[in-house]
Simulated scan of single mutants.
Amino acid sequence: MPYPRSGRLEGKIYIAGHRGLVGSALMRCLAAKGYEKILARSSRELDLRSEEATFRFFRRERPDYVFLAAAKVGGIGANSAFPADFLADNLRIQTNVLLAARETGCRKLLFLGSSCIYPRMAPQPIPEEALLTGPLEETNEPYAIAKIAGIVLARSLRRQYGMNCIAVMPTNLYGPEDNFDFETSHVLPALLRRFVEAKERGMPSVTLWGTGTARREFLHVDDLAEACCFLMENYNREDLVNIGTGEDLSIRELAELIRRIVGYAGEIRWDASRPDGTPRKLLDVSRIRALGWRHRISLEEGIRTTLAWYLASRNSAQAGER
């Protein structure tokens, strides 16, 4: 179904997952654009895994626009340890929000997918058309399958009911409000914390997972938020949209960059008995660039500001414990 360009969003805007990495960036972006009718609920106030609670919220508030950024997320370790939780929780969250939004007349919904939905051996850079063309990376298969189900449900609601759903596929994200827990974090914040602590403790070396040869693309979460707001205002097709930088580097190169920024002088060792994950994951961003958007925050600049946020946040937490 053809839709007009949305332009300025007039009405209530609900950000599902507003306290997470992506959701908090969306809050900042929308506030900077002058949007005031923003709905947000913490997971304690609203458990999106509950069908009853989710429908009750939507029937009461009736948001006009929804950014579906709520999800259970984590790195290789967390995905391997809790595969059932990653699959079941994300299926519940997505299905409840999508169906409740449809029932209550939501004008437009943006679904946040993930680049891990693409096949392990997808062509590089990965075009949106690669979805469902091959086996997934085993280490995050449950999470990826949940996200694929969400994309297909959003597309099906558009086709069956005419609901204006769009789906975006961000690359690896980092930035303020990221998760720095060693057990559940993604690679970039884990490396930042590891090098910071190694420097503070005077450790002679740091051992990292894998061989360091896997290649990854990284996007600052504030750039992602800008892209999502841009697409919510201007894009109305069912075709997926990749969001990334179009640039990648090896994990070994990333580690060296973070070590330099942190100022750690010790040795980096690699534990090849640990998994590398997908060999390479670089998104084809030609579609979103053709629409008129591209990222603005360089990786080094983004890492420096994220490091500053992490140190300030950690120091504030430690001061509060005294």
Rank of each mutant, 00 (worst) to 15 (best):
residue 178 D to R: 05
residue 174 Y to Q: 04
residue 201 R to F: 04
residue 211 T to D: 13
residue 181 D to H: 06
residue 175 G to T: 00
residue 248 D to C: 12
residue 197 E to P: 03
residue 232 M to W: 00
residue 217 E to N: 02
residue 223 D to Y: 14
residue 233 E to W: 07
residue 260 R to H: 06
residue 159 R to G: 02
residue 268 I to W: 09
residue 222 D to V: 12
residue 190 A to P: 08
residue 262 V to L: 12
residue 262 V to A: 03
residue 196 V to N: 02
residue 240 L to K: 08
residue 263 G to H: 09
residue 226 E to F: 06
residue 170 P to K: 05
residue 219 L to N: 09
residue 197 E to S: 05
residue 168 V to Y: 13
residue 257 L to P: 04
residue 174 Y to W: 02
residue 263 G to S: 14
residue 265 A to N: 10
residue 195 F to S: 06
residue 227 A to S: 03
residue 194 R to F: 04
residue 271 D to Y: 10
residue 243 I to S: 08
residue 184 T to H: 03
residue 176 P to F: 09
residue 217 E to F: 00
residue 199 K to C: 06
residue 254 L to C: 05
residue 220 H to K: 03
residue 220 H to P: 02
residue 232 M to C: 00
residue 202 G to T: 06
residue 205 S to N: 01
residue 212 G to C: 04
residue 238 E to I: 13
residue 196 V to D: 01
residue 161 Y to K: 01
residue 242 N to F: 03
residue 234 N to D: 11
residue 251 I to N: 01
residue 232 M to Y: 02
residue 216 R to F: 03
residue 266 G to P: 09
residue 162 G to P: 11
residue 237 R to F: 13
residue 269 R to V: 02
residue 189 P to Q: 13
residue 267 E to W: 06
residue 257 L to K: 13
residue 236 N to H: 13
residue 165 C to G: 10
residue 193 R to G: 07
residue 250 S to A: 14
residue 267 E to C: 05
residue 160 Q to Y: 15
residue 247 E to C: 11
residue 159 R to F: 03
residue 217 E to M: 05
residue 239 D to I: 09
residue 227 A to P: 02
residue 163 M to L: 15
residue 167 A to T: 11
